[in-house]
């Protein structure tokens, strides 16, 4: 009896191991296949004309998309960073985290972070494009993106602030510092790497977003945007446009550019987190 039970244990263990290993191999293989496929299809078509040339229907270019993407990053981060960081400071430093209202606000913020981006897109379309009469514009899309990344920034900034040990705040107050001095001289510098990391990841989300922009900035792939109020395009939108308008090679090439950008942004964020995140605090 006992021996059989033991055998069954060994068998279960082996089956489990094979199954989990197989799952890992398949998920890695899928990921690598996507990347390799895009690279193989895209890299041969990356050239100066595609990146920085003037757009013609024979030789399309992603220059308008690069500029448009920069505009969108600038607009959305400029709006979302101060508001998001400010909200997080208020939530952690000025409220009692156990109060019911604050708990509800947290749940609301988390829920907002999980809303499908196309919903933000239709919001941006109805408000900026239609109601406020912006028409299709980078500013309307940028503001919509700001609304979309706000909850993400609030949540991650809040986490960075909560990770600053209470003892440091007490130490500052005990030296006669005001609340404002404590926040700016002790709490924020301690949380800086976490906050910067979260902003960089937010930039990554802006770069990868397409659903919001389809409905708000007009996907004008062939004209350079003149200013914030112009319609425009972004890298992600170009991939969609090229893919659906008979330029599959250019779509793959743009995909490579997008991939490289997002991967480098994630690496930068990780490096910043690693460099500044360790051994910072007395606790632990």
């Amino acid at each position: 009896m006992k021996r059989n039970a033991h055998k069954r244990q060994i068998l279960k263990y082996a089956v489990m191991q094979i199954f989990t290993q197989g799952a890992l191999v398949i998920s890695l293989a899928a990921l690598i296949a996507v990347i390799i496929f895009i690279l193989i299809r895209g890299i041969p078509y990356i050239n100066m004309q595609l990146l920085f040339g003037d757009y013609t229907s024979k030789t399309p270019s992603i220059k308008p998309a690069l500029i448009g993407t920069l505009y969108l990053i600038l607009i959305s981060i400029t709006i979302a960073a101060p508001i998001g960081i400010g909200s997080a400071i208020f939530l952690t430093e000025y409220t009692n985290s156990k109060s019911r209202l604050i708990r509800y606000i947290r749940i609301a913020v988390e829920t907002l972070a999980g809303i499908p981006s196309i919903v933000y897109g239709i919001f941006g379309y109805l408000v900026f494009v239609i109601a406020l009469g912006f028409k299709y514009s980078l500013i309307g899309g940028g503001i919509t993106l700001a609304v979309m990344i706000l909850p993400v920034i609030v949540r991650s900034t809040e986490e960075s602030l909560l990770a600053v040990p209470r003892s440091l705040r007490e130490g500052s107050f005990a030296l006669g510092s005001s609340k404002v001095r404590t926040i700016f001289s002790v709490v924020l510098p301690c949380a800086a790497s976490g906050i910067v990391t979260s902003l960089i990841l937010a930039v990554g989300r802006v770069i990868s977003e397409s659903a919001v922009l389809i409905l708000t900035i007009g996907m004008v792939v062939n004209k350079m945007p003149k200013d914030f109020a112009s319609p425009g395009t972004s890298l992600a939108l170009d991939v969609y446009y090229f893919g659906s308008h008979g330029y599959p090679e250019q779509a793959a090439a743009t995909g490579v550019v997008l991939l490289v950008l997002v991967v480098s942004i994630n690496i930068i964020a990780t490096v910043i987190g690693k460099i500044y995140g360790k051994g910072e605090f007395a606790d632990g």
């Binding site: 440091l168 130490g171 500052s172 510098p189 301690c190 910072e280």
Partner: peptide, 13 residues
Amino acid sequence: VGMVFQKPNPFPM
């Protein structure tokens, strides 16, 4: 009225 705490709490600077 200065205060020194149980656990050393220097600022990370």
